[in-house]
Simulated assay, not measured.
Amino acid sequence: MERAESNLLRRGRFSEPGRLYLLTTVTHQRTPLFQELRAARLVIRALRHSERLGDCRSLAWVVMPDHLHWLIELRAITLSSLMRQFKSRSGTALCKANLCRGQVWQRGYHDRALRREDDTRKVARYLIANPLRAGLVAQIGDYPHWDAVWLTDSGSLHNCL
């Protein structure tokens, strides 16, 4: 049974190809599934698969122990289709690997369309700094589950963002 709030979240949701979106989704009951390295890597593989399909261009993402932040440029698909396919693909992979039992993701997700005047790199820096703010690491380079298109060969977030 759907909760009334989930319907309100969808009201007014608009998917515009070419627009940048910050997406957030959390695990079922905020279970910290992605503390397990293999589980986090399967989710990352599902993110990258969405990009290979041409559904989106990933600009930055961070997989936290119980949620995901994903900055994308939407391509020729709706946000709801992108997230539904991503959640299905990642959930199936996690269950096949015996890393979960039952539901992986909570229903729904949060999205925020970036405005043209928004500083995309600033949004990406904020997103990627989540492990620092959560106290998971002392420096972002120590956290293994994030990426951004602005990375250089040196791998220094401060130099590229």
Rank of each mutant, 00 (worst) to 15 (best):
L53S: 02
R45A: 15
L94Y: 02
A97C: 14
R45K: 12
L79K: 03
A46N: 03
T120Q: 07
A113Y: 01
A93Q: 10
M64A: 08
S58E: 07
S50L: 11
H49V: 06
R115F: 04
L42I: 06
A113T: 09
Q103V: 13
D118K: 07
A113L: 13
Q85D: 15
R75L: 08
M83K: 00
I44H: 03
L114K: 05
A40E: 02
T78L: 09
A93Y: 06
K96M: 08
Q85C: 09
E117R: 12
C56H: 01
E73Y: 02
R89Y: 07
W105C: 05
T120W: 06
W70H: 13
P65G: 03
G102K: 05
R75S: 11
R115Y: 06
R107L: 11
H110L: 13
R45G: 10
C100A: 15
A76L: 08
R48T: 01
G91A: 14
A97G: 14
I72N: 04
R75Y: 09
M83L: 15
V43P: 02
D118G: 11
Q85I: 13
A76W: 02
V104W: 04
R116H: 11
M64C: 07
A60E: 02
D118Y: 11
Q85K: 09
L71D: 02
R115H: 09
L47M: 11
C95L: 15
V43G: 00
W105D: 08
L114P: 05
D118P: 03
A113D: 04
L99Q: 01
Y109T: 08
C56V: 08
V63T: 04
R45F: 10
W70D: 02
L71E: 03
G91N: 11
R115G: 04
R101M: 12
A60R: 02
R116T: 14
R107F: 11
V104E: 01
S88Y: 14
E73Q: 15
H110I: 06
R52S: 12
I72M: 05
C95V: 15
H49W: 06
V62W: 03
